[in-house]
């Protein structure tokens, strides 16, 4: 039982059950507000019947030309609500929005190399490891850039993996 609604600023006061989990990053206010302001429809929160926040997704669109894509900045589920299919529900939502409303070529996300459970889940959803970004997390941990092509990318060019890893510094400059 879950209700998916738009993630609004007042939900930030109730995200503890999700964000106290060590793998979930808590950003500063500006980060959340920029997303809510620029891409309000991408931000979704899932609540339980008793109004507890179970999960949420934060996303956006970015890039130019063939690189126009949807990006999942954060998708996270509270520990006691895992294995209910919430993450895949939210990912499907983002993919549909990126495809139908924004006509994007692909959807991508970054994940810690050590987060094997999440990587396995994304692979099951059809994502592939497009490239490795060295020292992306706090300058110490590598990240995988995972991608899934949408219908606009018929030849699935966006999913051809890069042969060599990218340095976080180079990657951030090119953004």
């Amino acid at each position: 039982m879950s209700s998916t609604r738009r993630f609004r600023p007042c939900h930030l006061f109730r995200i503890n059950p999700v964000n106290l989990d060590t793998l979930t990053e808590t950003y500063n206010l500006n980060f959340y507000f920029q997303y809510m302001l620029r891409w309000p429809e991408f931000q979704q929160v899932v609540t339980a019947p008793d109004a507890t926040i179970m999960a949420y997704v934060i996303g956006k669109t970015e890039g130019e030309g063939n690189l126009w894509h949807g990006h999942v900045s954060a998708v996270t589920v509270a520990p006691e609500y895992r294995r209910l299919g919430l993450a895949s529900k939210l990912m499907t939502f983002t993919e549909t929005l990126s495809q139908d409303t924004y006509n994007a070529f692909f959807v991508d996300l970054f994940v810690r190399k050590s987060n094997s459970l999440a990587i396995a889940m994304y692979k099951q959803m059809g994502y592939i490891v497009y490239r490795t970004i060295l020292n992306y997390y706090g300058g110490s941990e590598d990240a995988y850039d995972m991608r899934k092509a949408l219908t606009r990318d018929q030849e699935k060019k966006s999913m051809i993996p890069l042969a060599h890893p990218v340095k976080a510094h180079d990657f951030l400059i090119s953004m």
Binding site: F13, R14, I15, N16, L20, T26, Y27, L29
Partner: peptide
Amino acid sequence: SLEIKDILVPTL
């Protein structure tokens, strides 16, 4: 160890 920061602070 809980690394409570930003918006989580006033609520906890």
